[in-house]
């Protein structure tokens, strides 16, 4: 049975809360599991599942600390991810030139390894101090109708 796996990479915790809200929204209608990218083993990527990736941006357009272990594992183990489908939701702040670039780093690597991104690349801009949660839930709703 296909599971919707929510992977979050966070620095200050916002992406974690988005992941929790997505899970709460989707549970009941589908099988959902949530992982901090720090706790996710690259060997567990499964073409049977669909991945919702939520990732913030840290500092100067870098990956958030929580995404670094997974990114490094992808680099060193170079798993073949062909057949893996995922959707991406990036958090950032457009006050900075590096808006939302953290998620793009992980997105590029997943694509290079053969995974296929589907649907709209979701983004939230925190420049007005708003929380990304509602926008992310709406994004996931629209996206999951299609996949």
């Amino acid at each position: 049975m296909s599971t919707t796996v929510i992977l979050y990479g966070t620095e200050s915790g916002n992406a974690e809360l988005v992941a929790e809200d997505l899970a709460a929204e989707l549970e009941g209608e589908r099988e959902v599991s949530v992982y901090d990218m720090s706790d996710f083993d690259v060997a567990d990527f499964d073409a049977e599942n669909f991945y919702l990736v939520v990732c913030s941006t840290h500092g100067d357009g870098e990956l958030p600390g929580g995404a670094t272990p997974l990114f490094e594992a992808l680099n060193s183990e170079r798993p073949n991810l062909s057949g893996i489908r995922y959707a991406m939701f990036g958090l950032g702040n457009s006050t900075y030139e590096t808006y939302s670039q953290g998620s793009e780093i992980i997105d590029r690597r997943l694509t290079e390894l053969g995974a296929k991104r589907v649907g709209v690349y979701g983004r939230h801009d925190a420049c007005d101090g708003s929380l990304p949660n509602d926008g992310a839930v709406e994004w996931a709703r629209e996206l999951l109708v299609l996949v």
Binding site: S12, N14, A126, C127, G129, S130, L131
Partner: peptide, 13 residues
């Protein structure tokens, strides 16, 4: 630095 202060919205929860 409203982006940094926005972490308070998390804590509100």
């Amino acid at each position: 630095h409203t982006g940094t202060k926005a972490v308070a919205r998390q804590f509100d929860r």
